[in-house]
Amino acid sequence: MNVREAHPPVAEAGRAARPRAWARGRWSGERLFPYVMVAPATLILLLFTIYPTLFNLNASLRDVTVYNFTSGAHRFIGTRNYEALGRSAEFWGATGATLLYVVASVGFGFLIAFGLALALQHTPGLRALVSPFLLVPLMATPAVVALAWNQMLVSELGVVNYLLGLVGLPAPPWLGTAPWPLVTVVLIDVWQHVPFMFFVLLAGLTVLPDEPFEAAAIDGAGTWDSFRYLTLPLLQPVILVTLIFRTMNAFTSFDVIYVLTGGAPGTGTEILNLFLYRKAFKGFEFGQAGAVAVAMVLITGLIGLVLIRLMSREDAERD
């Protein structure tokens, strides 16, 4: 992108300190090296993302459906698909459900993961004992485990409510009336992804320097104080990375919700991914679906941009 920035380490090394040499056409293996290294990955990413994006973009500007897809009798209709989407209460409902789902699932999951990481921070023995258990959900195949959850959660027949009943707790309709299904899919997402956040946060905690904490302890700071004024600020970059990765991941959720609720009750758990699926593979309106896809890429892109800016500020500080 910016040629001048391309070789800072080389420049620092005091050799070949003319960054513009590349621009002047002095090609050499050494100079090309970084580009050669980046090329294959970039090509693959472009192949698999540019084509789908353009495919969706093209479809979104046409009145293409299953009925005219192969005959080619579809027309260019400008932004009408987008206008229809803007008027669609279902689309905005799905957008709202997506944001609610992502925020709830990332937020709640983070609290649990952070709590666990803090609890196990200073107890390596216990950590070694417990870590294998905490790893389990990470390995579970979402499409299969969603069915297992389904069987476990059915209100009159499932083992979860049976066990809750044994210890005298109320048995909620996990997959029944709103808002329970949304709570359920969030909880399952949390279940599946707490381990990832836990391990990253724990790794972050283990590399925190000891000195500030020792100094604070000598000064008589309490647990809360050293957490509030030392752990949190020191860990901030790690927390940010965890949240960003997890948020991005949550936006791609599909399998579990599709299997468990299919969007029910009503469209209460219909996040954008399911909405797009309905438009494309149940409604067969590929033009509309294209518009949804483009809108999704824009929405997630926008959120991604915000997250990434946060991160890039950290990055800049580190440089």
């Binding site: 969706n56 936006f251 991914n273 797009l276 699926y277 999704m296 890429v297």
Partner: peptide, 9 residues
């Protein structure tokens, strides 16, 4: 940002 590309898209 590519990581946010939902597979369903």
């Amino acid at each position: 940002a590519m990581r946010m590309f939902p597979p369903i898209v």
